[in-house]
């Protein structure tokens, strides 16, 4: 039987995680982080928000983009789920609707990388507290 990952293995991996974090912290300030919020209420989850969130977390890391991915509740756009909110440093947040893995990929490459807006924006105006 193959070896199954355990807490002891995690302990061994800890150093590696820590050094990656140190590297990242040195390169940028926290206020320079891209913030991604995935709407994860019943409506979002039922429409596939989990796959989008999985994709965001793994791919932002793979592509070396410093970002925080968090969950949020229902924003009232149940018809357009899954929805995600992108906030680039120093800019107003933008909300995208009907996001699937393909759309998420486009958002990472165009919006997050190049600051170019992508189709599928839900036009809203609001201030977060």
């Amino acid at each position: 039987m193959k070896k199954v990952k355990s807490l002891a293995d995690l302990k061994k991996m800890k150093e590696q995680f820590q050094s990656n974090i140190n590297l990242r912290e040195k390169s940028e300030h926290p206020e320079g982080l891209v913030q991604v919020k995935v709407a994860m209420a019943t409506c979002g989850i039922a429409s596939g928000a989990k796959d989008v969130m999985d994709f965001m977390i793994t791919n932002l890391e793979k592509r070396n983009i410093d970002a925080i991915v968090t969950q949020t509740g229902c924003m009232g756009y149940c018809y357009a789920e899954p929805t995600i909110e992108i906030r680039l440093p120093g800019q107003d947040p933008v909300v995208y609707g009907y996001v699937d893995v393909k759309k998420a990929d486009e958002i990472i490459e165009k919006h997050i990388r190049q600051g170019e807006l992508v189709d599928g924006i839900i036009p809203i105006n609001y201030e977060t507290i």
Binding site: K5, L10, K11, M13, K14, Q16, F17, N20, T58, E61
Partner: peptide
């Protein structure tokens, strides 16, 4: 407890936990 200062929210930790639960 094992991670100490390393945050559980780190993407690498999240994917590690996923693999760990999956294998178990």
């Amino acid at each position: 407890e094992v991670l100490e200062k390393v945050p559980i929210s780190d993407p690498a930790v999240i994917s590690y936990m996923k693999e760990m639960i999956g294998e178990n």
